[in-house]
């Protein structure tokens, strides 16, 4: 696995169900400057499907999904 990128903002959405990790990422992307990198920690397996889908639909960049013990760190860059 490639080296994990340094994030500008890390959101810990582990073990939260409503509104959920994707909504937290949408919030962070809306607040971020173009080029900034955001990491979301999620224990919800659905995030690994939903987040890349939203990221590709909105033209941002999925940098990677990094598996940890019991959760994943999903890293996204704001592109526009």
């Amino acid at each position: 696995m490639s080296e994990e990128p340094k994030v500008d903002r890390l959101i810990d959405a582990r073990n939260t169900f409503c509104p959920g990790p994707l909504m937290e990422l949408i919030r962070a992307i809306r607040e971020a400057k173009v080029g900034e990198i955001i990491g979301v920690l999620s224990s919800d397996t659905g995030s690994k499907r939903d987040i890349p889908l939203w990221v590709s639909k909105t033209g941002h960049k999925l940098i990677g999904i990094y598996e940890k013990k019991g959760y994943a760190e999903i890293v996204v860059q704001k592109m526009r």
């Binding site: 409503c18 959920g20 994707l22 949408i26 889908l53």
Partner: peptide, 10 residues
């Protein structure tokens, strides 16, 4: 819906 589904909780 802002999400890929109607309701926030999957």
């Amino acid at each position: 819906s802002p999400l890929p589904r109607i309701f926030p909780i999957e």
